[in-house]
């Protein structure tokens, strides 16, 4: 006899990750899945790793803090690089991605990372590495890497939520914010309590900018385009709303805000800083996840 009623849907319209039935594909706004589902998750983690590594490097430049740039360099290249290769699946072919820096953002990214790797190596190994020119160049490279993931997404016109103008400022500040938190934690762990509490001022500033940018992203993307709006609706009201409210809002914004308030007077606490770092990392991952996952294509007619 006919299979169980619960299997009806599974039998006829098995899920393809877009949340749509097959007959709704590109007839209704259709989610991109390549860069977030299955192996696409690696790309999410890869973008995140490169970004936090570069963020840490960037913040370390201001303090000319060598362990920071070394760790940042390693995170960006080793962690980010490995995960990128995991995504691509074939390390022996990846070198080809340098071929077209004139048009493709991915090629540009590979070039930038390559230059960053080379110059960063010089900076961390040479004695006079921290001079203003070198710092400036490395700072620019870091900012380019921080924004690389989002820029790669931003140039994709097919996904209006990603090509929204509010994505870039958000990506920059999120990299800096996460990087600064990592650095602050390193200071604590390295016993530089003074440096760490000195950074708390910046934490307030960066957090505030981050908060504003998240709000601007939501507001701006919502009003940018009919399809971009769809993505925000998915984040706020659709199937991603739990991740958005708990991950981005609760963990990424509310908890750091509370911890900032607790430590408002500058009386920093290593454990609370650690908690905040974890919250910031989780919040940023959640934000990236919802942005990547909620991107939808415009129906074809």
């Amino acid at each position: 006899m006919k299979d169980k009623i619960d299997d009806l849907e599974k039998n006829m319209f098995p899920s393809d990750g877009t949340g749509l039935k097959p007959y709704e594909w590109m007839v209704r706004p259709t989610a991109q899945t390549q860069w977030i589902d299955d192996k696409g998750l690696f790309l999410w983690l890869a973008f995140f790793s490169s970004e936090i590594g570069a963020g840490l490097y960037f913040m370390s430049l201001f303090h000319e803090y060598r362990p920071g740039i070394i760790l940042g360099w390693l995170i960006t290249l080793i962690l980010g690089g490995t995960i990128h290769v995991l995504y691509l699946g074939n390390p022996f072919r990846a070198w080809r991605m340098i071929m077209k820096p004139n048009t493709s953002e991915l090629s540009r990214g590979v070039w930038i990372i390559g230059i960053f790797a080379l110059l960063g190596f010089f900076q961390m190994t040479s004695q006079g590495g921290f001079n203003i020119v070198f710092n400036f160049i490395m700072g620019i490279l870091c900012l380019l890497i921080i924004s690389h993931g989002f820029v790669t997404m931003n140039v994709i016109r097919a996904l209006p939520a990603w090509s929204s103008t509010m994505v870039l400022p958000l990506s920059l500040i999120s990299g800096i914010w996460v990087g600064s938190q990592l650095l602050q934690m390193m200071f604590v762990m390295g016993g530089s309590g003074v440096l760490a509490s000195g950074m708390e001022v910046w934490a307030k500033v960066f957090f505030l900018i981050y908060l504003i940018c998240v709000l601007l992203y939501v507001w701006g993307t919502y009003h940018a385009d009919k399809i971009a709006k769809e993505s925000i609706v998915i984040q706020l009201k659709g199937k991603l709303s739990q991740i958005f409210y708990i991950g981005v809002g609760g963990v990424g914004l509310v908890i750091p805000a509370l911890l900032i308030l607790i430590m408002w007077e500058g009386n920093i606490n290593g454990f609370l800083l650690f908690l905040r770092l974890i919250a910031v990392l989780v919040g940023d991952l959640a934000l990236r996840y919802t942005i990547m996952k909620s991107a939808v294509y415009k129906p074809l007619f």
């Binding site: 006899m1 006919k2 299979d3 299997d7 009806l8 039998n11 006829m12």
Partner: peptide
């Protein structure tokens, strides 16, 4: 649709 024969697994459970 609404088929259930064991001999036709592709058809089974469709429509």
């Amino acid at each position: 649709g609404g088929l259930w024969a064991d001999g036709r697994p592709i058809a089974r459970g469709k429509g």
